[in-house]
Amino acid sequence: MMTALQMQTQQPRWHSASASASSVNPNEVSHFNALAAEWWDPHGSSRLLHLMNPLRHDFIRRCLQASDSAPRLDDRSADSTVTYLDIGCGGGIFAESAARLPSTRHVTAIDPTPSVLSVAKAHARKDPLLAAKLSYKQSSIEQLQVPPEGHGYDIVSLFEVIEHIDDPGAFLDKVRPFVKPGGWLVMSTIARTWMSWLTTNLIAEDILRIVPPGTHDWNKYLNEEELRGFLAGKGWDSANVMGVVYVPGLGWKEVKGSEKVGNYFFAVRKV
């Protein structure tokens, strides 16, 4: 068990990687492969992700509303114009829901974990209407073809991904070319504080087992200021942040200021 003194002195466990190095950690792939069968069980190991999904869409709406020309995602009369790249899509919880929005033109969802991606594809096949708007690829960001200059996706999402990356700064640099000018990079992650260790590692994983043990490495959690530092001076603006808290029996709720202690959403717009 980690003591308070250890948490105060522990440095983030990130390491630098070359520009060509893969962002995929084999241990992470192995861990999520083992969870593949339960991905679409709303009471299984991915339960908290199912409950968080509505807030993901709320946060994206908030970002898009910053532009007067942005479509309302839930507007049935909206043209299908919004494109998504969902990186680390897992079993497709967010990707499927995004593809069903009237304003969505297409969702490309990638993940390096083969068993999880097989689950995502099998679940999507249950709804033939998704075929034209959703495509899955077993890929890392390094393997994906970079779009031409000035092109890309309206929304690039990193939901519960960045805290599993060994070198988050280099990874975010690789993601940037996939966001089109005026588009948004949207992510969710966890602040590295004693409270987040208590709630996500000790209580959620070790005691209640509502999250599989070994899912999170507290040393790789990212504080908001660190994310801002990785992105500073690299052609991003309009940073948005939303702190969220899981309330048993009620689900995930926005709580102002909670981004300083636990889970939060963060987004920036590409200039």
Rank of each mutant, 00 (worst) to 15 (best):
197 W>A: 00
116 V>T: 15
144 L>W: 10
204 A>P: 07
123 H>E: 11
180 K>N: 10
215 T>D: 12
117 L>M: 14
165 I>E: 12
174 K>T: 00
124 A>R: 03
139 S>D: 09
222 L>W: 09
207 I>C: 00
237 D>Q: 12
175 V>Y: 10
223 N>E: 00
120 A>G: 12
208 L>E: 03
140 S>L: 01
119 V>H: 13
154 D>F: 02
209 R>P: 06
237 D>K: 07
235 G>S: 09
191 A>R: 07
223 N>Y: 06
210 I>N: 08
161 V>L: 13
237 D>T: 14
145 Q>P: 08
151 H>D: 10
225 E>S: 13
239 A>I: 03
175 V>D: 11
179 V>H: 03
114 P>W: 07
172 L>T: 09
193 T>L: 02
132 A>G: 09
187 M>P: 02
187 M>I: 03
179 V>E: 00
236 W>T: 03
114 P>D: 12
213 P>T: 02
224 E>V: 15
190 I>S: 00
176 R>C: 08
133 K>F: 09
154 D>Q: 04
243 G>W: 08
185 L>N: 12
199 T>D: 00
162 I>Y: 14
118 S>Y: 03
180 K>P: 04
120 A>D: 11
156 V>G: 08
115 S>T: 14
131 A>W: 01
195 M>C: 08
214 G>Q: 06
229 G>I: 00
118 S>H: 13
183 G>A: 10
214 G>W: 01
243 G>L: 09
163 E>I: 05
222 L>G: 04
171 F>R: 01
201 N>M: 01
176 R>K: 12
194 W>P: 01
186 V>W: 08
216 H>V: 06
149 E>H: 12
127 D>C: 10
221 Y>N: 10
128 P>L: 07
196 S>H: 01
185 L>C: 07
143 Q>N: 12
234 K>V: 01
239 A>S: 09
220 K>P: 05
198 L>Q: 08
126 K>P: 06
116 V>E: 07
146 V>K: 07
160 E>D: 15
169 G>F: 00
126 K>I: 11
118 S>M: 13
220 K>V: 15
152 G>S: 07
157 S>A: 15
219 N>S: 15
228 R>T: 12
153 Y>S: 13
222 L>N: 14
168 P>Y: 02
229 G>H: 05
177 P>V: 08
164 H>A: 09
126 K>L: 15
